[in-house]
Amino acid sequence: MRRRRLLSVAGALAAQALCPVADAAAPATERFARNFDGMRLRDQDDRPFDFERLLGQVLLVGFVYTGCSTVCPVQTRALVEVLARLPRQARVRLVSLSVDPRGDTPAVLRAHARQVGADLSRWSFVTGRIEDIDRLGERLRLFRPDRAATPADHASGLWCIDAEGRLVQRYAGNPPDVARLVRELPVLAGRAQG
């Protein structure tokens, strides 16, 4: 039990160190969204996707690709369960960004979302240009430095962004702790409304 707690604390500290956000002097609304500045992202409906328009909601952001057969499907199934268990009125939105822009077109993402039973009224599947995903990967340290040119070795964590756009928590994504997310996300969303 003690070892598990130490590993949990060490993991949390490592996650904080690996999550670059804008400096503390920057306005809160710029912190996480600033990582996406200049990127042309598209959602599953092939509409422009902009993090700024989601301010006011708690966001749980993860990185996946539809061709994955290991971690991504497990994470996606868990997040389907999280959304199903969250109160409808909770201002929580999930965002899954593809790390495989070559294969994950908006149409592919939409088909995938339907196949897994994702509630698209509260969940966006997003893709972008290859250079944007590569740049985002560098900014958020999504890939191992020695990775091959495939999306397989990407970070599986989940970034939790508060209603003001600040990174407030990194959750494990392999697999996500469904009970913890169901318990904590509404509390965070309630603070935003209060």
Results as ranks from 00 to 15, higher is better:
Val92Gln: 04
Val108Lys: 10
Gln89Asn: 13
Ser96Asp: 15
Ala84Asn: 12
Pro101Asp: 01
Arg77Val: 14
Val71Met: 11
Thr70Gln: 13
Pro106Ala: 09
Arg102His: 12
Glu81Val: 04
Ser96Gln: 13
Val80Tyr: 06
Arg85Gly: 05
Ala107His: 11
Val92Lys: 04
Cys68Asn: 09
Ser96Cys: 00
Val99Met: 14
Arg91Val: 00
Arg102Phe: 12
Val74Phe: 02
Asp100Thr: 00
Gly103Ile: 01
Pro87Arg: 09
Ala107Lys: 13
Gln89Pro: 05
Ala84Asp: 15
Ser96Asn: 14
Cys72Ser: 12
Thr105Val: 02
Arg77Asn: 13
Ser69Ile: 07
Ala84Lys: 15
Val71Trp: 07
Pro87Ala: 09
Pro73Ile: 09
Gln89Phe: 13
Gln75Cys: 07
Gly103Asn: 06
Val92Phe: 03
Arg85Thr: 04
Val82Gly: 03
Ala107Ile: 03
Ala84Phe: 02
Gly67Asn: 11
Arg85Met: 04
Ala84Ser: 13
Val99Pro: 06
Ser96Arg: 02
Val74Tyr: 03
Asp104Gly: 01
Asp104Gln: 02
Ala90Gly: 11
Arg88Tyr: 13
Pro106Asn: 11
Gly67Ala: 12
Ser98Asp: 08
Thr105Tyr: 07
Cys72Phe: 10
Thr66Asn: 01
Leu86His: 10
Ser69Pro: 00
Val80Cys: 13
Val80Glu: 12
Val82Ile: 06
Pro101Arg: 01
Leu79His: 04
Val74Cys: 07
Val74Pro: 03
Asp104Leu: 01
Val82Thr: 04
Val108Pro: 04
Arg77Met: 14
Cys72Asp: 13
Ala107Phe: 10
Val74His: 05
Glu81Leu: 04
Arg93Val: 15
Arg93Gly: 07
Gly103Glu: 01
Leu94Trp: 03
Leu94Ala: 12
Gly67Pro: 00
Gln75Glu: 15
Leu94Asp: 08
Gln75Asn: 12
Val71Ser: 14
Arg91Trp: 02
Val92Arg: 07
Thr70Ala: 15
Pro106Trp: 05
Gln75Lys: 15
Leu79Pro: 05
Val82Asp: 04
Ala78Pro: 09
Ser69Tyr: 02
Val82Cys: 03
Val82Glu: 03
Glu81Pro: 03
Arg102Ala: 15
Val99Cys: 05
Val74Lys: 13
Cys72Met: 14
Ser96Glu: 13
Pro73His: 08
Ser96Tyr: 10
Asp100Phe: 00
Val92Ala: 05
Arg77Ser: 14
Gly67Ile: 00
Asp104Tyr: 01
Arg102Tyr: 14
Ser98Gln: 00
Cys72Gln: 12
Leu83Gln: 14
Glu81Met: 05
Thr70Asp: 15
Ser69Leu: 06
Leu94Tyr: 02
Arg91Ser: 11
Pro87Thr: 08
Val99Trp: 00
Thr70Gly: 11
Leu94Thr: 05
Thr70Lys: 08
Pro87Phe: 12
Thr66Glu: 05
Pro106Arg: 05
Leu79Lys: 05
